[in-house]
Nucleic acid binder design. Structure first.
Lengths: 277, 277
DNA sequence: TCCAGTCCTCGTACGGTGTACGACGGCTGG
DNA sequence: CCAGCCGTCGTACACCGTACGAGGACTGGA
């Protein structure tokens, strides 16, 4: 469950899966199936549980079988990352640029929260097809704000950086408050309100940290989510830097809106090569 | 070299290192020394090279000796993280709040760039003393913008989130362009200008990604740094949300400015407990 | 002087990991 | 019938984190 993209997987192993599926069409192994199974594992038991042995076992095959479909564990992670990115592509992009950027950001955020392991994989640079699709969607919005390509890129990066940074912080925070036994449920409940750290008091009472102390006595919670505030400020800044953008809403631009079939079909496409072994 | 904080380490092992050093004062093992050695290792050969065996070897002791000073490898990572954070505390906080936030952000950024492994450790929630000091410095600035503690926290988070997100993206980008042999040098040279991905063209020429294609033909580089733009926008938004802050610069507030001695002395202090074994 | 106790070190061993190598069966085309 | 590929997988190796317990150095009290 909770696989980011649900789609029929065409068989065909290592070399060029482009052809039509052979008649005996059972859903044998494939990079995508590997990725989906690995994601399921990571969602359920954390990224550390994704070992080649466990993944193979969960697929009912021998360990080394995986290495026929995947060069590395790194490549497996790349595939997971690509699949993850495909999971939060928008079907339709809102006409208003603020709404659009907000929607993309929040979808991404939710996706990270559903698949916390993705943050540990995010360091990986692999530029997969879905990453490009994601960028394309961002670009569709940014191009309504400015015509300068460099500026478009700056806008996109600033928003997506904020998303990643904020989500990373939030997830480490809630990783704290559930220090052990990270079973499947991550965001259940609205999170306990107070600063949960035991022994927090001893450290903060140090006369060295007056403002933190004041914050604590004020009952302020350090881990409050409030991502929207930050994004709002950033968008305000962007808007101020690009006058004459706010009102002239140029109707719903024909969003690329990748038809669901396409998203899946080409997803088996090899990631871009990373090592030239 | 390049250890974030350089300071005399007092000996004394597991239980309460508070007392004065015994006469025979050779700099034996200590959590701090472990952390510093581990950081040196991680700087030189990446986080993956930091194994208990290698760390022990680099210190000239047996592997299991480490476990007398550290409960876990996790605790070692916590110590590294704490030491890392201590490495970019400001000695003096600029009077102007924009300059102050910018300086904190950039110092943090540079620190991440010097120690890229820290981003992989950043998922860890451990609230060490240096983390609190870092927060305190942020708070010293945020309290000049608003009196609302919750708003202060929101401001701090938004800035630091942007820093983390941006740095994470940049480092993965340059991790790409130096795919193998990640030796010590990370940011040498201004980075090659063009989109370096081999095979990038094949993917982008897909008619599915028109805007990316346009971007590429426009010669725009996707991995341009330009962190300052994003931060500028964010600060603009914050400033706009808090009118009457920009000009009334209330002189150089007496920054906590932890005297260098203090920063070091207490740094051996145990991290806050994470697992309640 | 002896002994008990604490601090610190470390060798060994166990179960886990990623993966190189080569063997093996089944299918297909000549 | 047979060569050759596709896909599978067992074994082995080096490395990892760490539980366990032995042992040495040094202390303070008897």
């Amino acid at each position: 469950m909770a696989a980011p993209t649900e789609l029929a997987v065409e068989p065909g192993g290592r070399h060029r899966a482009g052809q039509a599926s052979p008649p005996g069409c059972r859903p044998s192994l494939s990079p995508q199936r590997l990725a989906l199974a690995a994601i399921e594992l990571a969602d359920a038991e954390g990224l550390a549980a994704v070992s080649m042995r466990r993944l193979a076992a969960s697929l009912g095959v021998g360990t080394m079988t995986l290495y026929y479909h995947v060069r590395d564990k790194d490549e497996l992670l790349d595939l997971m990352w690509n699949e993850f990115l495909g999971g939060h592509l928008l079907e339709e992009i809102p006409a208003d640029w603020r709404a659009a950027l907000t929607e993309i950001a929040q979808r991404t955020r939710q996706s990270y929260q559903r698949h916390p392991w993705a943050l540990n994989v995010a360091v990986r640079p692999a530029l997969g097809l879905n990453k490009l699709r994601h960028l394309e969607q961002y670009l569709a919005v940014a191009s309504r704000i400015t015509d300068d390509p460099d500026e478009q890129v700056r806008i996109i990066h600033s928003v997506s950086d904020l998303v990643v940074g904020c989500t990373l912080r939030e997830l480490s925070g809630q990783a704290y408050r559930a220090p052990i036994k990270r079973t499947g449920h991550h965001g259940d409940g609205p999170a306990p309100p107070l600063e949960p750290q035991p022994g927090f008091d001893e450290l903060v009472t140090a006369e060295e940290l007056p403002r933190l102390q004041a914050l604590r006595t004020a009952g302020c919670q350090l881990l409050a989510p409030r991502f929207e505030h930050a994004l709002g400020w950033l968008l305000d800044g962007i808007e101020a830097a690009h006058p004459g953008v706010g009102q002239a809403c140029p109707r719903a631009v024909g969003a690329p809106a990748p038809d669901p079939g396409l998203v899946g079909t080409a997803a088996t496409t090899r990631m871009l090569p990373k090592k030239r072994a």
